[in-house]
Amino acid sequence: MSTPEVATDRRAGRQISTELVGGLLMLGVAVFFRLNAGEGRLDWLFPLVLSYVLGGLGIVLLVRGIAGFGDRLPTVPPILRGQGVDVAVFILLTVAYVALMPVVGFWVMTALTIFVAAAYLDTGRSARTLVLASGVAIAVCIAGFLLMTRVFYVPFPPVRWLPFL
C-alpha cells in the first residue's frame, strides 16, 4: 500500500519494505534470546517458547516482505533530513541527560536539558524566548525538587559540588 506521501519519498531516495526490516529485526532478536538462553526445564521453558514463536513470526513477516506486501520506508539518507535530525538530536540530548546525571547531579542536568531542548525546538528563536526557556527550566526544577524530595522523598543523584542539592 503506497500513500501519496510515500510515493513522494520514493522519488527522494531508495525505499525498503517495513515487513522485510521488521522480519529481519525480529528474527535477530529471537536468535539473540535463543543463543543466550540456558538449560533447565522450568526456568527456561517460557523464554525458549517465546523466542521460537518470535522467530517463526519473524520469518512470516520476512516472507511477506520478500513477496512485496506492506508499506515501504525511505532508506537512511532521506530519513536524516528534517524530522530525522530533530529526533536524532533529541535522542542524543536524552542520552547525555541520563548519562551525565550521576556525575553532574539530577537537578542541574534536568535544568540544562529542559533549557537546551526548549531552545533547540523553538522555531522562532530570540533572546526573549531563550529567557523564557531558562525561566521554564528553573520553574520546573524548583517545583519538581519540592514535590519529589520534600513530599515523595525520592533520593535523586545529588549534585556533589553543591551540597544543598
Binding site: 533529541f90 525546538l121 535523586f156
Partner: peptide, 20 residues
Amino acid sequence: RFLAPIVLFLSVVGSFAIRS
C-alpha cells in the same frame, strides 16, 4: 518546545522513583 522536555523529565522521574 516546552511540553516535550517536561514530559521527558516526568518520564525520567517516574522511571527512577519506583526503585531509585
